[in-house]
Design a protein around this nucleic acid. Sequence first.
DNA 1: TAATATTTTCAAAAATATTTGAAAATTCAA
DNA 2: TTGAATTTTCAAATATTTTTGAAAATATTA
Lengths: 168, 168
Amino acid sequence: MKLEEAKQQFINSWGAFGTNWGINRTMAQIHALLLISPDPLTQDDMMETLNISRGNVNMNVRELIDWGLAERVILNGERKEYFTAEKDIWKVVKQIVKERKKRELEPMLQLMDKLEQTEGDKKDRHVKAFMDTVEGIKKLGKHADKTLDALIKAEEHWFVSNVVKMFK
Amino acid sequence: MKLEEAKQQFINSWGAFGTNWGINRTMAQIHALLLISPDPLTQDDMMETLNISRGNVNMNVRELIDWGLAERVILNGERKEYFTAEKDIWKVVKQIVKERKKRELEPMLQLMDKLEQTEGDKKDRHVKAFMDTVEGIKKLGKHADKTLDALIKAEEHWFVSNVVKMFK
DNA sequence: TAATATTTTCAAAAATATTTGAAAATTCAA
DNA sequence: TTGAATTTTCAAATATTTTTGAAAATATTA
């Protein structure tokens, strides 16, 4: 397969993949494009390569920056803005984990704390089932939170070498 | 807060949460409803509680069953079908991980294997950047695959106790 | 078997999410 | 400053996903 075709496949798949994870297709495609670009790109470059409008590029690049996955780059005497993405996949994964944890896991745990205060007699099967579920989610969520904190601080080396230990 | 209000909040939040993860709102809501129901429910129960159509319940219940998160239950002399969900959150998480791994991670790794065969001179910066990205994803993905296999086989106890060890 | 209850299907409608493109705002060079 | 280049915004258009509801299929009982 030639490079151009391979790139296209990579970008399309990354986009489809993102879709499954609640990330919009274009944002994922722009990310893919930046990942495989040796040099920073302008918004016009992205418009052209992905065949999308200026507004679309602009909004999704901003979103990528919000997620900490891309950044603006000032180039010597150039007037236009350039953008790059973090290339180290381990760092990319950690950054996504960090953001989703903050945006989703933490609010969810707060909700569980609140729902844990629900009034009612625990002898009532309905109250019991509800409380058990809330407690179960809270307990596991707290552990996941700590585990992900460890992951975020870890080096790739740690992760890779621990794969073996985990099987013991 | 009263039980009914708490249930509503739980169901709505679980639905919104699912949405962020590429799972449709209704499927997540049905799952939430089954999680907190001490007894199995019929499709009519779900239609009424969630205010959705029969077709919608039917399709999403089937989807939950596909994901291994719910199952049909035959009740003594009843004519209608009943449904329940796995209540153990650790098992629920493992099941979701198992399915997503199979549906998404594995196909992605296959694609990386294929893209790794791309023709081209590695001295070309564009070829190099592409190949480095593909290799990076492949390498990390393979490790994630193994780690998740370990997780899927693990007991909750293992997970919970390992949180501490991971910090060392 | 026929009558009734229940479940499933799926085309069309509705809801939601994404994208466009042109106007407004901003930045920069002279 | 001014004016051209560039970026940003956002209402409207488009695309995608989800939901409905009624007809068809299936299952159950008498």
